[in-house]
Write a protein that binds this DNA or RNA. Structure first.
Length: 883
RNA sequence: GGGCGGGUAGCUCAGUUGGGAGAGCACCGGCCUUACAAGCCGGGGGUCACAGGUUCGAGCCCUGUUCCGCCUACCA
């Protein structure tokens, strides 16, 4: 006989089954298998990453779907892998070097990249092990890395093709520059934060010495790169200065006054200093007016020689400080205003980003965005919840070219070579030996690498072997669903759609499930600096992985952020224990069990048996439907309620009386106990893989693992509405008795005699047939039913629909207590009746409401009235008892 | 500036076609009833942010107000 401990201990169990699944290779998807495929690619975590609660959430949801689909018989692939995370990883290794008193420049590019690989092989990807701990059924055999040879080949193929089609170009533009990381960033990689700054008003004198203009700026240090002042041609105030020149203070450079309708006459003074090398709008202005561009900063954010000898070498913010002092001293600074404005920061290191003119590579986005929008518009791709589609369209419609070059060393080096002889740029799939224009061998490869998101954009097909025509690609592309947070909707999802359509001619996935962000109990975003992070690994240690997973699923209602509170996790840990102990009970009653767990319909199934089977069937339907629609919380809650509130609270209690007998009823109960437990475990398995496997393996069955067993399916014919109704009656009586017991403060151990008066012969029969249940669960000695029952004077009673529940309490009646109870009930009824009467006497309602609604209310009114009458009579006798 | 999401029990949140609101935790009372005290039984608790509107009927649909959160934007 199988015995379980009194408490479920997750630690050892999780380790054991985690290993078992992998040894058995159950996570592997076979591309040669013909059964219908279901595929998901993991959002590749950074190799620098450690599992945080967001990962845990994201991957739990994917695993739920993967395990569910696998059990449904789909050839299920969940593709694992990691992202090389260019800037983040480079930062990590540079920090190490710094600690050693070295830096990457000292090491040189080749040695540095080698060092990063070494780091990655040794300590990169700790998250892989953590995902395994979480129970993720990823096909580890297929693990990919964005810097792998195959994926690098895909990157080159895509880059070169786009270049050949003119969709990749190189040029001088203002980009977002991080002076700390010393690289360009895409628009998306800049985080805008509101900051309290200053608006400096500066006086620029006219060259002819007659008067001056006041301009306003938030970044005074950029004035050193000014090459014009602009006003709006319609601005009356400045008409008279047309065609004049000004003198740039401090540097005494002559700059023209230009006119452009871009200038907002209502902001500041209506006069705008123009710095084409340090502001995107000024850059455009400069282009329109053929202005000189003067870049006054070094890549590290210090001022260069063009800023003048006074400022050269100073950091941009030091420069600002000194310059403002100097401007004040020389009378140029007219006034300083406070101004709150938004300032861009590097998303990797939080340094204030500098708009910076430099030569970069770009992807032309518009032509790629058009089909990507269409795919969502026509429903080829479904975004769930749907409201994210709006966000997607809005961004796509205003999409700008994507800056893809990064001035770092860790990443895919751009496959472009500059000919040192003739200046030709050679872009090629294979490293060229000679210049395509002049045949010189003097080629130097572009030093920049590609944005990490460039390779991520290819993930759904590059991981499957593209550009080779592999069977995996054939089998698993397009993938079925993508599960991710909204924070990377543009970074990643949109770009995958663009690239997938461009290079595969087909969308990369059908369903995109966008989940919410996990916050702390106060709704704050979790962050290390705030110290409010919940570490999933600690939670798993403390409460068990299954409890964490279930909590996350139960919280995953669509469209709302998740405030994670620890007591919820504890609650679901208790659920594990509940399930464990229910199973313990089942095993304790199997010592003589010989049958198979297959359900023989011809067995003498009791009412309770048939009831729980019917309920199981309903739960099964709901779970499948909920998962189909990615309503994880509904699915989780359905299983939870079924197991706890139906199987445990009622069915197990009901079987106890059957199990004490020997004979067919005991065997039937055993069969049903096992069958329902088995099915419930399967329903729960996607959410709680470990505990379900542990219990399931002990059940009599001959399959290898619950994770490859068949997921329950709804069977119409298993639904038994009649028996559910019967059980409802029984449960109603039991609850009614318990209620009286509780409210009358009767000892729970006290056996009671109970009378149920009802004129409905069917109900009478039900109660008589199921009397043993009522006796056992409500602690009843004698149960008498009939139409002509005389109510003893000293008794408590309540009205349950068509039944009068009467409990004689001679010698132990607390009349006052009973009176309170009845009056409370009557009060409620009166309130309801007033409401119903009002409603039903409203001619509009009777005239316009659907017949079934009126019917329902009429019935309610009738039964309430009857109940009222009965209770009033009862109350009268109670009052006599008091007197 | 524009857009989106949200305000439901003390707390965290469900509520899928509009027909008088649910869960978990917390709280109160009673139980070691031979699976489970991480449990069992019973109970109290809500002008569904506010104000209008549509409707016989609104937590749900429409308008406005307000508070919170997020995304987005080149006003120097």
């Amino acid at each position: 006989m199988i015995q379980l401990d009194k408490q479920y201990e997750p630690g050892e169990v999780e380790k054991r089954w985690g290993q078992f699944w992998q040894e058995k290779n159950f996570f592997h998807a076979d591309e040669t298998k013909e059964s219908p495929a279901y595929s998901i690619v993991i959002p590749p975590p950074n190799i620098t990453g450690r599992l945080h609660i967001g990962h845990a959430f994201n991957n739990t949801l994917q695993d739920i779907i993967a395990r569910w689909k696998r059990m449904q018989g789909y050839n299920t692939l969940w593709q694992p892998g990691m992202d090389h995370a260019g800037i983040a990883t480079q930062n990590v290794v540079e920090k190490q070097l710094h600690a050693e008193g070295s830096n990457r420049q000292e090491l040189g590019r080749e040695a540095f990249v080698e060092r990063v690989w070494k780091w990655r092989n040794e300590s990169g990807g700790t998250i892989t092990g953590q995902l395994k701990k979480l129970g993720c059924s990823l096909d580890w055999e297929r693990e990919r890395f964005t810097m792998d040879e195959g994926l690098s080949k895909a990157v080159r193929e895509v880059f070169v093709t786009l270049y050949e089609e003119g969709l990749v170009y190189k040029g001088d533009y203002i980009i977002n520059w991080c002076p700390r990381c010393q690289t360009a960033l895409s628009d998306l990689e800049v985080e805008h934060k509101d900051a309290q700054g200053h608006l400096y008003h500066l006086k620029y004198p006219f060259k002819d010495g007659e008067g001056s203009l006041i301009i306003a700026t938030t970044r005074p240090e950029t004035m050193l790169g000014d090459t014009a002042v602009a006003v709006n041609p319609d601005d009356e105030r400045y008409q008279k200065y047309k065609g004049k020149s000004l003198v740039l203070p401090m540097l005494n450079r002559e700059i023209p006054l230009i006119e452009d309708r871009y200038v907002d006459t209502s902001f500041g003074t209506g006069a705008l200093k123009v710095t084409p090398a340090h502001d995107p709008n000024d850059f455009e202005l400069g282009r329109r007016h053929q202005l000189e561009t003067i870049n006054v900063m070094n890549p590290d954010g210090t001022m260069n020689s063009l800023a003048g000898s006074e400022y050269e070498g100073l950091d941009r913010f030091e420069c600002r400080k000194k310059l403002v002092e100097d401007l004040k001293d020389s009378g140029v600074l007219v006034k300083v205003e406070d101004l709150s404005h938004s300032v861009g920061h590097c998303y990797r290191c939080r340094t204030v980003v500098e708009p910076y003119l430099s030569k970069q590579w770009f992807v032309k986005a518009k032509p790629l965005a058009e089909p990507a929008m269409k795919a969502v518009r026509d429903g080829t791709i479904k975004i769930i919840p749907k409201f994210w589609e709006n966000t997607y369209f809005e961004w796509m419609e205003n999409i700008r070219d994507w800056c893809i070059s990064r001035q770092i060393w860790w990443g895919h080096q751009i496959p472009a070579w500059n000919c040192q002889s003739c200046g030709e740029v050679v872009v090629a799939r294979k490293t060229p030996k000679t210049c395509s224009a002049c045949s010189s061998a003097d080629l130097v490869q572009e030093t920049d690498v590609l944005d990490t998101w460039f390779s991520s954009a290819l993930w759904p097909f590059s991981t499957l072997g593209w550009p080779e025509k592999t069977q995996s690609l054939e089998r698993f592309y397009p993938t079925s669903m993508l599960c991710t947070g909204f924070d990377i909707l543009f970074f990643w999802v949109a770009r995958m759609i663009m690239m997938g359509l461009k290079f595969m001619g087909e969308v990369p996935f059908r369903d995109v499930y966008i989940h919410a962000l996990i916050r702390d109990a106060e709704g704050q975003k979790m962050s290390k600096t705030k110290g409010n992070v919940i570490d999933p690994l600690e939670v798993m240690e403390q409460y068990g992985t299954d409890a964490l997973r279930f909590t996350l699923a139960a919280f995953a209602a669509q469209g709302r952020d998740i405030k994670l509170a620890e007591d919820r996790i504890e609650g679901y840990r208790n659920f594990c224990n509940k399930l464990w102990n229910a199973s313990r009970f089942v095993f304790m009653n199997l010592e003589d069990y010989k049958g198979s767990c297959a359900l023989d319909e011809k067995n003498n199934l009791s009412t309770a048996d048939r009831w729980i089977l019917s309920r199981l069937n309903r739960a099964t339907k709901e779970v499948n439907e909920a998962l189909e629609a990615f309503r994880f919380n509904d699915a989780a809650l359905t299983v939870y309620k079924f197991i706890w509130n139906e199987y445990c609270d009622w069915y197990i209690e009901l079987t106890k009386s059957k199990l004490t007998d020997s004979g067919p009823e005991r065997v039937a109960a055993q069969n049903v106990l096992i069958h329902v437990l088995n099915s419930a475990l399967k329903l729960l398995h996607p959410f709680m893989p470990f505990i379900t496997e542990e219990i399931w393996q002990k059940l009599p069955q001959d399959e290898d693992s619950i994770m490859v067993s068949k997921f329950p399916e709804f069977q119409e014919e298993r639904t038994d509405a009649a028996v559910e109704k019967e059980m409802d009656t029984v449960m109603e009586v039991i609850t009614g008795i318990r209620n009286i017991r509780g409210e009358m403060n009767l000892n729970p151990g006290l056996k009671l005699n109970v009378l149920v008066k009802t004129s409905n012969p069917k109900t009478q029969k039900t109660l008589q047939d199921q009397a043993s249940y009522i006796r056992k669960l409500a602690r009843v000695e004698q149960l008498q039913t009939g139409a002509e029952i005389e109510k003893p004077k000293v008794s408590a009673s309540s009205v349950l629909g068509e039944m009068d529940l009467i409990i004689p309490l001679e010698g132990m009646m607390d009349f006052q207590e009973e009176r309170n109870r009845i009056e409370k009930e009557l009060k409620k009824i009166q309130k309801d009746l007033i409401f119903l009467n009002k409603k039903l006497s409203n001619p509009d309602f009777v005239e316009k409401a659907p017949a079934e609604v009126i019917e329902k209310d009429e019935q309610r009114k009738t039964s309430l009235s009857e109940k009222q009458v009965k209770l009033e009579i009862h109350l009268k006798t109670i009052k006599q008892g008091i007197d």
